[in-house]
């Protein structure tokens, strides 16, 4: 399984990547939506993207819309991981095409539960 971790905070990218690697994911990181799109265009298309909302250059919502507008990327699962906890924002992200939503601060268990729910947790980790 591959995951692209998109967040403008280096610290948060390291934390999320470390968590996912603990679940057996191979990860890459991007500092904003455009950088993440560049990774996808390069041909590194992951099973999962974790996406912060507020980022410079291209925010998370714009990234979700861009991915959803490309049928070639329809297999990519999109999970928002953000401090935007307002109900209206969650609805907007899900309406734009995000599959799941995790509000910061989160625990490793919360991430694990969400990716298990999405069917992305390797079987040996789900036991």
């Amino acid at each position: 399984m591959r995951a692209l971790v998109i967040d403008d905070s280096r610290a948060m990218r390291r934390i999320v990547s470390g968590t996912l690697e603990g679940f057996g994911f191979e990860t890459r990181q991007a500092g904003h939506g455009q950088e993440a799109l560049d990774v996808l265009h390069e041909g590194w298309v992951p099973e999962l993207c974790t996406i912060d909302w507020n980022m410079p250059v291209m925010d998370g919502l714009q990234f979700v819309s861009a991915v959803r507008s490309n049928p070639g990327w329809r297999a990519v699962t999109l999970m928002m991981v953000t401090s935007e906890g307002e109900h209206g924002q969650i609805v907007r992200a899900l309406a734009a095409g995000a599959h799941e939503y995790v509000i910061k601060p989160f625990t490793a268990d919360a991430i694990r539960d969400k990716i298990a729910l999405l069917g992305l947790l390797p079987q040996e980790m789900a036991l």
Binding site: S83, E84, G85, E86, G88, I103, K104
Partner: peptide
């Protein structure tokens, strides 16, 4: 900055909305 962002985002969530959060 990320700590401030997480605390700020959760503070915003308990305030009347809609509100926007800066970087």
């Amino acid at each position: 900055g990320e700590l401030a962002n997480v605390v700020g985002g959760n503070v915003k969530a308990v305030l009347p909305g809609p509100s926007a959060l800066g970087l």
